[in-house]
Design a protein around this nucleic acid. Structure first.
Length: 215
DNA sequence: ATACCGATCGCCT
DNA sequence: GGCGATCGGTATC
């Protein structure tokens, strides 16, 4: 277990796929709810056709071009909010989409915000559901996720060196879980790029849907 | 026109 | 219970 050798800000400032792997197991807290991240996707800024930043800077994607550790929150399909963690060096618009997580605190609040969820594992299973469970909306776009006192906070969590019995876990720690990688959800091209990362055998990981262009 | 999606419903095991 | 189709609001370029 032990503390991270690298600060979270430093980790996030690196390549998006490394930042993405490092974000698994971290927690995001907002609105009285904490979620342990179990699934993410990396987006490589202006050189990635699937990225919102692919066609350059616009008012919507502006925070992606800033330093790592800030929240890029966007509205889609006329009703959903989704949240990315900006990564890479300042000026490079890469980001990691938070696709799913496990609610580890504020269960009652998360259930209130997500009345359609039939199981607790569904509360934050999917990028828009995760934001709904946390109460994250456009007003949180651009917040510093690593600053004390931010409305949305990202934290690293201690991990044990290897799986042990649940009773032996230090409080708040999780065993190191196996990470799998595959193509991103809803992304047309780049199926050769395995930039979706998730914990194996985790019930809170969202179901894969391949992009379906309309006929 | 299309989008880094979710809820629901139909059909299938 | 799992999988595929369908519709739902609107910002964006």
């Amino acid at each position: 277990m032990g503390l991270p050798k690298l600060s979270l800000r430093r980790l996030l400032s690196g390549p998006p796929e490394e930042a993405a792997r490092g974000l698994l197991g971290c927690t995001v807290s907002a609105g009285g709810v904490t979620v342990r991240i179990t699934e993410v996707e990396a987006y490589a800024g202006t050189r990635d056709a699937a990225s919102h930043a692919f066609r350059g800077r616009t008012p919507r994607n502006a925070v992606m071009f800033g330093p790592a550790g800030f929240a890029y929150v966007y509205f889609t399909y006329g009703m959903h909010w989704c949240m990315n963690v900006v990564c890479g060096p300042d000026g490079e618009a890469s980001a990691v989409l938070l696709r799913a997580g496990e609610v580890v605190r504020g269960l009652a609040t998360a259930r209130d915000r997500r009345p359609a969820a039939r199981r607790d594992a569904d509360l934050a299973r999917g990028p828009a559901r995760l934001c709904a469970a946390l109460g994250v909306t456009g007003e949180h776009n651009g917040v510093d996720l690593l600053a004390v006192g931010s409305a949305v906070r990202l934290r690293r969590v201690r991990t044990t060196a290897r799986p042990q019995s649940v009773g032996a876990q230090p409080e708040g720690a999780h065993p190191v879980a196996e990470i799998l990688a595959g193509p991103r959800v809803g992304v047309t091209g780049a199926h050769d790029v395995p930039w979706r990362f998730w914990y194996a055998d985790d019930p809170t990981v969202s179901t894969y849907r391949r992009h379906v262009p309309k006929a």
